[in-house]
Design a protein around this nucleic acid. Structure first.
Lengths: 315, 315
DNA sequence: TTGAAAGCGCTAACAT
DNA sequence: ATGTTAGCGCTTTCAA
């Protein structure tokens, strides 16, 4: 029997050739059961087809690969129960870590998972009272940026397109920033900011449909602030269908600055999030968290206003 | 001690309350080791941020969820070795099934995995001589559709933008269809179709850069056929940078018809793939394959030419 | 009906 | 150096 190249402790001489002949496959479950930690890192995301999160996660994935972790992305379709089910399942699998942008406000479940030794990093969301690692963008500042830009252009009545119930903290903050900017300009957000609900999933279709309400409003808005670029895409589509010209008749601003934002018709004004920094930092916090005397940290980045062609002076 | 609501066979009375107090978590590895099949289905994709595959996989995910499977998406960045590593790892995990659009031409590895009892479904790729389930689109027909459209508009010299070495069968087929259409129109593809390589990953950046070569060609093309819409997006960007007008000076056609294609400037002419049918069928073949007397099947769909504003008569 | 025990494939500790 | 063994947490089988 030939000697194996690297006879691991305890293993009897194993004939590599023979193993191949028998189509032998190592059993990961047995190894994990024995106490060896797994290499699966899960990135939980509301929508697997969200271009923004995908871009962030690609960066995270690359960084994690350097440390021999496999990052898989899982979608949960904005459903809290689905999120819970996914977490339970991942916990049972003994994952190496979790990157998540939670749909629920309540973080106790994640707090518990983290406390039990599984690294958890919040993405695009602050931990609040919870003791967790987080990577986020100052969304209130982002909302203010969008608001000030619109206000500077003379808009006085603005629509905000967000998800059905605004449970997602990041969106809540963007909306609050927007309201704050309006208040600072002497407007009353309760009257001059009109909330339009865009039910998930399939944001672009929902936003497209929401335009029907916007164009038939008795007291019309002159600008639309969208929770993200996908929503803005839907709005552009809907407006196009109704023959409304952007930005001449109405201004549209997005959020994220995804790859295609600059090439839309018209080129989308938006609030850029630092994709690369978010993704890389998320990976690094996750890795750090596995180390001995770890303290939870929050990394916070600033958004940036990108002015393109979809916003203009209020007619 | 309170009786459990559903005392499973063999398990001693378990006090649910006590379990919660002790923060007890079921161990999935132990269960799997004992022979219970897992619920993880992996969708392996070249790029986690590819909008086309994400859209397809979202549909697959939904269908799979009905059968209590968790679908996670994993990216491998077009690297064959990374694909192999991922497959090994998934096999060790004892996954319930794999949906994959392989980067390599060689399917023996997948054939072996399938033979060992793990359902494998090829996405966007025919099995060829291998005995595997597959869901695909007739890419040759797609290439012909694109070619005939361009030829009909009077274009006689066309650039094809594909990945670095055209290993991906789907792209190879599109290119062949294009060449076939040219031959049928009496042109010599070897002379009149110029191949431009777009190295992965980050197709849009690479395509943007590739435009530099296109605009400085001594014998210029009047049309650009792109392997997919992301590449087309990059081309549009690059052309814009060079001040070249689309479609007046040059025509651009994409492939996939992703969500944002219709709202680009100019609206992108492209070859549409039936996203929903692909995703749903992939899930169903995967589920079928787990059943007793299963025979491998291939489902094939037809692409569709979508004419928008990025293609026009050759000047 | 309820409890005990075997054993899945692996690794760490131990015995040779 | 090399070989043996215990046991991870679960489910299935068998015994009481």
């Amino acid at each position: 029997m030939a000697r194996p190249p690297t006879p691991r402790a305890g293993s009897p001489h194993m004939d590599i050739e023979l193993m191949k002949q028998l189509e032998f496959t190592d059993d990961g479950s047995a190894r994990r059961l024995r106490g060896v930690s797994g290499r699966l890192v899960a990135a939980i995301v509301t929508d697997i087809a969200s271009p923004f999160y995908s871009e962030v996660n690609r960066v995270t994935e690359d960084r994690l690969a350097e440390d021999h972790c496999m990052m898989l992305m899982c979608g949960i379709g904005l459903q809290a129960d689905q999120e819970a089910r996914m977490l339970t399942w991942l916990q049972e699998q003994g994952v190496r870590g979790i990157v998540i942008s939670p749909v629920r406000d309540d973080l106790t479940r994640l707090q518990e998972i983290s406390g039990r030794g599984t690294p958890v990093v919040l993405l695009d969301r602050l931990p609040g009272r919870a003791d967790l690692c987080a990577v986020s963008v100052d969304h209130r500042a982002g909302g203010i940026l969008a608001g000030e830009h619109l206000l500077r252009l003379g808009h006085r009545r603005i629509a905000f397109l967000g998800p059905s119930p605004v449970t997602v903290t990041a969106v809540k903050e963007r909306r609050q920033g927007l309201r704050e900017a309006m208040r600072d300009a002497g407007l009353d957000p309760d009257r001059d900011l009109v909330d339009i609900r865009v039910p998930a999933p399939n944001l672009v279709e929902a936003a497209d449909a929401a335009v029907n309400m916007i164009v038939t409003m008795k007291d019309p808005v002159t600008a639309i602030a969208c929770m993200n670029d996908m929503t803005a895409l839907g709005v552009l589509q809907g407006l196009g269908r109704h023959g409304v010209h952007v930005p001449e008749e109405i201004s549209v601003i997005g959020y994220d600055d995804v790859t295609f934002a600059s090439r839309l018709a018209p080129a989308l004004s938006t609030i850029r999030q630092p994709t690369h920094a978010l993704g890389r930092t998320a990976a690094e916090l996750l890795l750090e968290e596995a180390e001995p005397g770890h303290q939870h940290r929050t990394a916070r980045f600033q958004p940036q206003l990108i002015v393109r062609a979809s916003t203009a002076k209020a007619g």
